[in-house]
Design a protein around this nucleic acid. Structure first.
Length: 379
DNA sequence: AATATTTGACCTAG
DNA sequence: CTAGGTCAAATATT
């Protein structure tokens, strides 16, 4: 597909930014892991960040900035596969590629059912060995490798194998896109755990998603009872929203609601304030895109939108007061002083959200009696 | 029932 | 032949 023609200096800068971002994210993760957990247990839970909040915030800010810089480089030069190629150059093995076509005659479309029925019959009938058809390794596919601390990347993967790897402490897991058969998507990924406690995985993405990852109605679930756990999964990440991708450009850090200059500077953040709390009443935590799984739509290869979900809340009442702010760069959607009761989960239809909210300037939402997320104000 | 995971066999590149 | 990528039946989960 697209080949990367990125000036070397920018390429270096991009790599540098990504490395820095990764390092800082790791630090932040450790920080959260080491300091927050004990605090959560003996303390109030959501106030936990406060003890190390200054440095953590600092780190978070730097990380965001790092990704912003990265985005500005990427989106300024290529909106397609640039990032893949760049990161790929950093990848460990299965390199050598850059032969984007010739994706191994790996059963090009699922319709030409290759290894499917036919071989199944031959194998199961009499245990007769026969070739399963055209299966070949896809060593010529685009691939890139990252090191992360979670299996979650917001995409729908289906595990199809696991292997013990020579000289590797942990087995390697193989995943394919869930839409492999209904949409012929050939994206796969391999996850190699390289460390335990804290967990670290080296994730290699092979091939690009060709699917539209939007089959089920996207939903954002905010379950009060899960907030504690969610906070422990915290880290930062870059994900993509297909609909928003085309208008991403440079900076993603501004939250200024006053200016409505252009369609760029997109950032999704969600603040979940708690007001019954003693120390701080406003904390922002970046959640993994697993929390956004169902609204997350694409693959990490196609573009980047740094979407962070900030959440904090109080559980000391049967009425949680939450305030949620979505900000797409300089546009903000704010939900202040929403009152919700009970421990039900609130769902937000992200289909509608993604489609329409870009048009909003500032408006209010709340959870109604059915815990539906609804619009209060006008556009 | 549909969908996901586990796991040993199968298959290919080197 | 070996190492590692994939298949698919059995099993588990939703």
């Amino acid at each position: 597909m697209g080949t990367c023609i990125l000036p070397q200096n920018l390429s270096k800068r991009l790599i540098k930014e990504l490395i820095q971002g990764k390092e800082m994210a790791t630090k932040l993760q450790l920080m959260l892991h080491d300091h927050n957990k004990p605090l959560v247990e003996e303390n109030i839970g959501f106030g936990s960040v406060s003890s190390s909040s200054s440095s953590a915030e600092e780190l978070a800010s730097k990380i965001l900035n790092s990704f912003s810089q990265t985005l500005s480089v990427v989106t300024g030069y290529n909106n397609d596969n640039t990032i893949n190629n760049i990161i790929h150059s950093n990848s460990s093995d299965q390199t050598s590629q850059v032969n984007p076509h010739d994706q191994a005659s790996h059963c090009d479309d699922p319709s030409s059912d290759d290894y499917g029925a036919e071989s199944k019959i031959k194998r199961s009938s009499h245990g007769i060995k026969d070739r399963r058809g055209c299966y070949k390794r896809r060593k010529n596919s685009q691939s890139w490798t990252t090191t992360v601390s979670t299996l979650e990347d917001g995409q729908a993967w289906r595990k199809y194998g696991q292997k013990e790897i020579l000289n590797a402490e942990y087995p390697r897991a193989y995943f394919r896109c869930t839409r492999k058969y209904d949409q012929g998507c050939r994206a796969t990924r391999q996850v190699q755990q390289i460390q335990d406690n804290p967990k670290l995985y080296q994730t290699t993405y092979i091939g690009e998603h060709t699917c539209k990852n939007i089959l089920k109605p996207p939903q954002m679930i905010i379950k009060d009872s899960d907030l504690d756990n969610n906070l422990m999964n915290v880290i930062t990440s870059t994900t993509i929203l297909e609909e928003v991708k085309p208008i991403i450009s440079s900076s993603i850090t501004t939250n200024d609601t006053s200016s409505l200059s252009d369609d760029h500077h997109n950032k999704l953040s969600l603040d979940h304030h708690h007001h019954h709390h003693n120390n701080s009443d406003h904390e922002i935590i970046n959640l993994w895109p697993s929390e956004l799984k169902d609204l997350e739509l694409s693959d990490p290869s196609m573009g980047l939108l740094s979407s962070s979900l900030g959440v904090s809340a109080s559980n000391n009442d049967d009425h949680d007061i939450v305030s949620i702010m979505f900000s797409f760069g300089d546009r903000t959607i704010n939900t202040t002083n929403c009152s919700t009761s009970g421990t039900n989960s609130h769902s937000l239809d992200m289909d509608e959200f993604v489609d329409t909210s870009i048009e909003f300037r500032s408006c209010d939402f709340e959870f109604d009696d059915n815990n539906e997320f609804c619009l209060l104000g006008s556009l």
